[in-house]
Design a protein around this nucleic acid. Sequence first.
DNA 1: GACTTGACTTAGACATTGTCCAATGTAGGA
DNA 2: TCCTACATTGGACAATGTCTAAGTCAAGTC
Lengths: 138, 138
Amino acid sequence: MSDLLERLRGRGWRMTAQRRVVAEVLDGEHVHLTADEVHARAVAKLPEISRATVYNTLGELVSLGEVLEVTTDKRAKRYDPNAHRPHHHLVCAHCGAIRDVHPTGNPLADLPSSERFGFTVSDVEVTYRGLCPDCAAA
Amino acid sequence: MSDLLERLRGRGWRMTAQRRVVAEVLDGEHVHLTADEVHARAVAKLPEISRATVYNTLGELVSLGEVLEVTTDKRAKRYDPNAHRPHHHLVCAHCGAIRDVHPTGNPLADLPSSERFGFTVSDVEVTYRGLCPDCAAA
DNA sequence: GACTTGACTTAGACATTGTCCAATGTAGGA
DNA sequence: TCCTACATTGGACAATGTCTAAGTCAAGTC
């Protein structure tokens, strides 16, 4: 919970009301919010917070590795506070619903060095696509 | 080459100059173009083509399964004409360079049904991230 | 070849998402 | 308490994509 705030303080973050609110919004939610949704919820707690600050703060949280950026669709980036447990995503192609999933296997190991073209590969993002039960029924 | 045009005609596409140009641009390029880049190249061949038409046509090509939509970064969607050979992507986190890669293994098989939450999973997109040789050297 | 029709294209306004900047405010140390 | 560097603000701006009304044209029909 406020583990997050503690960690941030420990990293030399200057603690402002705005940053606390953004961290709280992410910390309290186990969903995948867009920047705008984060802003909307932050405004509910602190009406004068600006959009630029939310973007800045999200960017900083991402650089610090506290939050993951997920780009499941063409629209907005989404922010996933569940950064400390590696996982991937399952997205409904119709309604956009997102679930966290934990596949077996290790995709990084599946990329032979002959297929790496000299890149230093550090990360892999797997997005499964399909229809959620509701959309499949419709 | 004009296989693509033939297939499209066979599917009842009304063949217009604009659609032919967009199909040619994609067909001739083995790279990953953004919608705007496709538009720029289409304009070179047919100056009066409009942005809306390029977007429409790209959308149709994607629905028909002739072209893949790739969202490797927050910016623009990219269009990959290599839709008939399944592959994944390796992206440089610094300069955005993209390479097609062919990992071993089958990520779809790695998602147990207990992790599918009732979804009908039909597709998987794997994006490896890292640094390309040039950016790693810098 | 001319006609007809409905699908296609166009230009530009609009929407969404994200970035940037100069002016102002403030957290935290001295 | 005061200072100062860092953070925030608000609004302009940029990039990407969507929508619409009006005009255009491909392809079938005669």
